[in-house]
Amino acid sequence: MEATIEVSGLSKRYGSTVALDRMTFRVTPGQVTGFVGPNGAGKSTTMRILVGLDRADAGTAKVGDRSYHELVRPMTTVGTLLDAAAIHPARTGRNHLLWLAQSQRIPAGRVDELLEEVGLAGAARRRGGGYSLGMRQRLGVAAALLGDPPILILDEPFNGLDPAGFVWMRDLLRRRAEQGRAVLVASHLMGELQDLAGHVVVVAGGRVVADAPTRDMRDRYGSLESAYLELVR
């Protein structure tokens, strides 16, 4: 299996609102791909369709040559962070990861490993209701990494993180990409993506308006931010 994401001709309407209009792009392994666009451009919908939470009206969304719902032990192929981790307020962070691990037949030892890696080891036995946004974000990342997947899909991973968290997240994503994984990161933080992403997909109004290496964008527009402002205008 090749660690790629392939979105092809994806369309989706909600009533009279067009959410996606033949969205097409490809995410290749070995680099972080930035996924940018204004609010309502279709980023989240695309990601939700990629992981089977929404159904597309037309087109295909494949992760590693397959639809998400065809995957066996899907979280070992794709790690996903959509909103900050949804956790039952009464369940501890560790137990949250434990049931997820069991659902994918991942050994429980992996849970403690990951809690250590995302810096939640100290809070692992506290109830989720008491977690800050940053802690829930770290828990969500832990859930995404649980199956050691070759593909990562992350929506606004920097949300709620403190400055140290930014550095940690940046390193984590860069390292995963260098390991040959496909990493799709939706974000509004142009400065972050300019340093982190090797490739950028810019969307507006449900369709792709630019799909190019970050370096090309920067060369042409001066910075990713200027490129974004120019492209989605």
Binding site: Y68, P74, M75, D83, A86, L100, S103
Partner: peptide, 18 residues
């Protein structure tokens, strides 16, 4: 339905896309 209230339905569906 409790999973829909807490948003926990997302990880559940990601774990079991079928």
């Amino acid at each position: 339905a409790g999973e829909y209230s807490t948003g926990l339905i997302h990880p559940t569906m990601l774990a079991f896309p079928t």
